[in-house]
Design a protein around this nucleic acid. Structure first.
Lengths: 264, 264
DNA sequence: CCGATCCTCCCACTGAGCGGAATCGCCACA
DNA sequence: TGTGGCGATTCCGCTCAGTGGGAGGATCGG
């Protein structure tokens, strides 16, 4: 927390990540000045470091803008975030899409947010705000509710303590959400109705690994849930079961998902 | 700058990337010792730096192994490698898969290699060695031949100068390959027959941006090409045209930066 | 022409980073 | 229970890589 990166005491590594972290979905290309500012580094320092990163492939220069380099993309693909799960799940997402033509989501919980691992949408039918690699609140999305329902107590408490409103239909009362989470356990699926974005509803089910642990959630986004919900849930459950069965004995027993992993 | 990373003179940034670069598709999890060795760093240095990177999210620790961190995955998704192209192409790859049930590839040229941007394969039908983010030789793959045929002269020369054999059917004679490249221009598609892996054939077509430039290649891998090749080529061409048409007026051509908002 | 904005380069100071060496913890084998 | 090997961790004093203020250039626009 805290320390200004430009004050002595900051490591070079942290500066490197500050530079890379200056980029986000809305800022994929930055001028040197913008880069320095967003990274909280003095211009000269940013300039030198950025130059070095370009040499290493961590950044790329396009005209007078910097963008994240291909090397980072390469490396990111090696991250275990997706290594097994995405690979295994891909064909099933596919089948789901073929069967429903809805937007298909594969997500896991990252701290107190949903992290979208994969998304599959044909031509956009419904407004969908998710993005692969993107994060959204747990309480406003179908996959989020599923993951929240199966999250450790401390995470549930933390999330329930603050339920920001996103649309007029967002559930902001802890009691109501709590009841819904219980229902997720009881019925095996979660749903949302315009709680994240108007005109979009979703259903989702848990994906369980070989040992019964909930490792991810699988969801669909549709314009309307009133008819055909049962069909969608069934399709989801079939796919989720298939994914779970295809997952190897999984290695990641050692603890992860601490609630407070984010550095800022 | 080729020096040993452990000798004074190496920058911290280069050491950071040396650590990250120690991972590859076959080494997704490394012990500290292995990490240090592969990165070419003294153990103590690797230990300290790795610890720092874990704190920054660049690495993750699982038991006594290190893996690439989620943060890197996040950042990688911001790289322009795929930003536009993959997004736009996804539904078309999809359609192709639905129509052919073959493994579908989207690739671009990275130097003297094919870089696979996306891959879509149902349950494996044919042995396929590609991997998203992976690289393969230009002369042994369908997409590679397409990209090579449309590559600048110097790249062609460099590739033709050394054609390593991969299977007994790999084309290693510059003359024959050259002839094939001419045919790619003439006929608008390329093919391979067990030149990369036995039992796998492929066809591929170029994807052209709005300005006619070849920005990528689209390919299919099938067990046999003797019958139905025309159908596959047609499907590919339809999809490639669709992708090209959907691409915005920008391109991922090097050194040019178009697009995008500005910071202010 | 001049001022504003952004990029690039320089260079002397200094504390962050380095890494050899010692230590710890674990396991296998005797 | 001892012993030896292997890997992870910690320590600490030296030093050179990194820092960043500031000067200088390149554009742009009025």
């Amino acid at each position: 927390m805290a320390g200004n990166l430009s004050t002595p005491g900051a490591s070079v590594a942290s500066r490197v990540f500050a530079l890379l972290g200056a980029f986000d979905a809305e800022h994929r290309a930055l001028s040197l000045t913008a880069l320095a500012e967003r990274a909280g580094l003095p211009l000269a320092t940013a300039h030198r470091l950025a130059g070095e990163l370009v040499g290493l492939g961590g950044l790329e220069r396009r005209g007078d803008r910097y963008v994240v380099g291909r090397r980072v993309w390469d490396l990111g693909l090696l991250a275990p975030v997706q290594a097994e799960l995405r690979q295994v799940a891909a064909p099933f997402l596919h089948d789901l899409y073929a069967a429903t033509h809805a937007t298909v989501h594969l997500a896991e919980r990252a701290g107190a947010e949903v992290l979208y691992l994969d998304r599959l949408s044909g031509r956009a039918t419904v407004p969908v705000v998710s993005r692969v690699g993107g994060r959204l609140p747990l309480h406003t999305t179908g996959v989020g509710k599923v993951l929240l329902a199966h999250a450790p107590d401390d995470v549930q408490r933390a999330v329930l303590a603050a339920l920001p409103r996103v649309t007029p239909y967002t559930i902001t009362q802890p009691g109501r959400l709590c009841e819904q989470l219980r229902r997720v356990h009881r019925e095996g699926f979660a749903q949302t109705v315009e709680e994240m974005s108007l005109g979009a509803c979703s259903v989702a089910v848990p994906v369980r690994g070989p040992d019964g642990e909930v490792v991810a959630a699988l969801g669909l986004v549709v314009p309307d849930l009133r008819r055909g919900r049962a069909r969608l849930v069934t399709a989801l459950q079939v796919a989720a079961a298939g994914i779970g069965r295809s997952l190897p004995a999984e290695s990641s027993s050692p603890g992860e998902l601490p609630l407070s992993e984010s550095s800022r």
